[in-house]
Structures are given as structure tokens and as C-alpha cells.
Amino acid sequence: MTDPHHAEPMTSIQPDGFELRVDGSCVLVGGFCASSGLYHFPLQDCCPYTGAFDIERAELATTGSLWGWTTVTTAPPGYEGPVPYGFGVVELDGSALRVITRLTESDPARLAFGARMRLVADVVAPGVAAWAFEVAR
């Protein structure tokens, strides 16, 4: 895709699990297992909780509630993006999946348990975006 505001095309850091679309939107792609009734992320061939193979692709809700958060203050090995950055868990609407994610808010004092969150793309390297959640205003 091409970001209309940037000359460089933006690619997803993990295209199988995080889709960037031409209209500028983005979505996390997981799976739903009919026999276990459980969602998972990222999409696998079999249910990570039961091992069953009746899996269908599922686009996950782009909204949820903040379930955990912290701030990474030192760049960890292999990471070259901005520091500090927010890091946490968002419990998605619908699937109730708890997803590990970057957070656009890096001040932990400005976040609260249960805050409403919304999926966005976050640049982690030139031309590369990862999923992140921002506080829904």
C-alpha cells in the first residue's frame, strides 16, 4: 500500500497477522475454531488451545479494552524504533482475545485499566509498521 501522506510505501512487519489496506485502515487477522469456540492470534493451522483443525480465518475487532500496560525505556535487542514506547495487552471486543501490542501512549500514568482502545499502524522502522493501540478519544 502507499500512505497518501508519505512518498514511501508502508509494509506490515507481519503481513499474515497484521493487514494494511489501501484505504489506510488496518486489521489483525486471527483464527476461529468452531469446535472449541475460541479465537486465536495470529492465524494458525490448528487451535492453539485444543489442537483441533476446524479453523477459519477471522478478522478481529479493531477496538477493545486496555488490560495491561507498561513502557519500554531501553531499546531491546533487535529493535531500532523509537524509545520509549508503550507496551501492553488489549482485550479485544467480541473475541475477548488478549493481544500483546505496542501502545502509542508511552506515559503509563496516562493510561488506566479498562480504557477504550483502537487499533492503529505504528512505524517501527523506515517503511515498516507494526500493530499498536491508541486510546479511543
Binding site: Q14, V72, Y79, G81, Y85, F87, R102, V124, A125, A130
Partner: peptide
């Protein structure tokens, strides 16, 4: 996962 900043063990 390292490049995404999702591999920081202390976090």
C-alpha cells in the same frame, strides 16, 4: 518480533 519491539523480556 524483535523489530516490532514485542520481544523485550522485562516488559
Amino acid at each position: 518480533r524483535e523489530q516490532a519491539g514485542l520481544a523485550a523480556t522485562p516488559s
